[in-house]
Simulated assay, not measured.
Amino acid sequence: MFEYKLTAQCPETGARAGEFTTPHGVIKTPVFMPVGTQATVKAMTPPELEGLGAQIILGNTYHLHMRPGEDIVEEAGGLHRFMGWNHPILTDSGGFQVFSLANINKIKEDGVKFRSHIDGSRHFMRPEDSMAIQQKLGSDIAMAFDECVSLPTTPEYSREAMERTIRWAGRCREYHSRPDQALFGIVQGALYESQRIECIERLEEIGFPGYGIGGLSVGESHAEMYRVLDALSPHMPQDKPRYLMGVGFPTNLVEGIARGIDMFDCVLPTRNGRNGQLLTSFGKMNIKNLAFARDYTPVDPNCGCYVCRNFTRAYLRHLYTAGEILAARLCSWHNLYFLVNLVNDARQAIIEGRFPAFRRNFMENFMEGAYLNE
């Protein structure tokens, strides 16, 4: 039911194009996954997501457990039917949110005690609980429960968390029983290359159909992220998908693909869109800037999205200054299209044997105008 097939690879960089088969469709990789934290990609309907080319979206175990609860989702027919999305869905384990959002958390070997960020109620989540919730949600891909370490951290604590993540991965693998749901392990180890390599090797001994790389894009520099990926990439299995968790800045996507990453997700396109920040082929644009008040050109002349084909920078700025909901919708729409299709274009470049030139041209153009009109 779950199979990864490598269809093309760049001999110079190792960038990969592949296909990952799931019960709700074949995912063509590399792929960017819009984040639907609470069973919705903010401001977007499922047909709109289909129209901009999204293949798979992400739901969040912690948030869906808090509300409406996994039992309600299961009674509704599972997450696909509940949210009206008949394509692949990945759910993260809830571990990142337990460690980053909860007001108080206490880590034990058995699991994590925490308070809800909504009402302060007390909760306890074990690896087995994360599996039970995700199985009720019915996603195509579930993630093992892990400990995500904040930075900076010491080698000693990073190792402690990495060891716990491996033990919890074994417990998740043993508990998980849903045959129509793939369970991915998660590689931890902070910025310590040897720990990252050891972690993937030990996770492979447990055996998973895919592997996430967690604990990056949490405050480290881009150079530090790339250093870890450079060290880890040769040790990742060739016949399994590789998922870089929580990464969505355009240059990070292209550089991640150059290092053999297959899957990405991030809240950046919708979060930035709600705040008037637009991603373009020539850098990042603040549409609220006065300079756009009489600018009757598209956001990005190189973009083929619905927004760029139908509206101007002046109109989007007007919507923001008028406080119209449509501003957040249109800017989120454009940003999602931009990232989904950036990754699709990278895939096509890999297949056609021109990825190094694609990478070079994109980086030069994007960085030349980066942070325009901040």
Score class of each variant (00 low, 15 high):
residue 207 G to L: 05
residue 17 A to H: 01
residue 97 Q to C: 07
residue 160 E to T: 08
residue 126 R to Q: 11
residue 164 R to I: 07
residue 63 H to M: 05
residue 121 S to T: 13
residue 250 P to A: 01
residue 208 F to Y: 13
residue 362 F to L: 14
residue 197 I to W: 02
residue 93 S to D: 10
residue 130 S to E: 12
residue 31 V to I: 02
residue 228 V to A: 15
residue 305 C to F: 00
residue 303 C to D: 05
residue 233 S to L: 02
residue 244 L to Q: 10
residue 324 E to F: 05
residue 307 V to H: 01
residue 313 R to Q: 12
residue 97 Q to T: 07
residue 292 F to L: 15
residue 198 E to H: 13
residue 48 E to K: 09
residue 94 G to H: 07
residue 95 G to P: 07
residue 161 A to I: 09
residue 360 R to Y: 00
residue 116 S to D: 10
residue 236 M to T: 09
residue 294 R to F: 10
residue 371 Y to I: 03
residue 368 E to N: 00
residue 313 R to C: 06
residue 231 A to R: 11
residue 358 F to N: 11
residue 81 R to M: 01
residue 166 I to V: 12
residue 221 S to F: 11
residue 172 C to A: 13
residue 26 V to N: 14
residue 65 H to T: 04
residue 153 T to L: 04
residue 254 V to A: 01
residue 60 N to M: 04
residue 112 V to Q: 01
residue 27 I to W: 03
residue 163 E to M: 08
residue 280 T to A: 14
residue 9 Q to S: 11
residue 346 A to Q: 02
residue 103 N to A: 14
residue 317 R to M: 04
residue 26 V to F: 09
residue 177 S to W: 00
residue 47 P to I: 14
residue 365 N to F: 03
residue 275 N to H: 14
residue 341 N to A: 04
residue 356 P to Q: 03
residue 2 F to V: 15
residue 140 D to R: 14
residue 373 N to R: 10
residue 47 P to D: 15
residue 20 F to H: 06
residue 179 P to N: 02
residue 112 V to W: 13
residue 207 G to V: 04
residue 202 R to S: 01
residue 368 E to Y: 06
residue 113 K to C: 03
residue 228 V to R: 05
residue 8 A to P: 01
residue 321 T to M: 11
residue 320 Y to M: 15
residue 201 E to H: 07
residue 317 R to V: 07
residue 134 Q to E: 08
residue 210 G to I: 07
residue 269 P to I: 08
residue 303 C to I: 11
residue 13 T to K: 11
residue 9 Q to G: 00
residue 175 Y to W: 12
residue 332 S to T: 04
residue 18 G to T: 12
residue 72 I to Q: 15
residue 288 K to P: 09
residue 212 G to C: 14
residue 357 A to N: 03
residue 231 A to Y: 02
residue 291 A to E: 11
residue 334 H to C: 08
residue 91 T to F: 07
residue 276 G to Q: 05
residue 43 A to W: 00
residue 283 G to I: 07
residue 332 S to L: 10
residue 16 R to T: 10
residue 79 L to N: 00
residue 366 F to S: 14
residue 152 P to N: 08
residue 169 A to W: 05
residue 267 V to C: 13
residue 355 F to C: 09
residue 30 P to I: 11
residue 66 M to L: 15
residue 101 L to C: 03
residue 165 T to H: 05
residue 110 D to A: 14
residue 178 R to H: 13
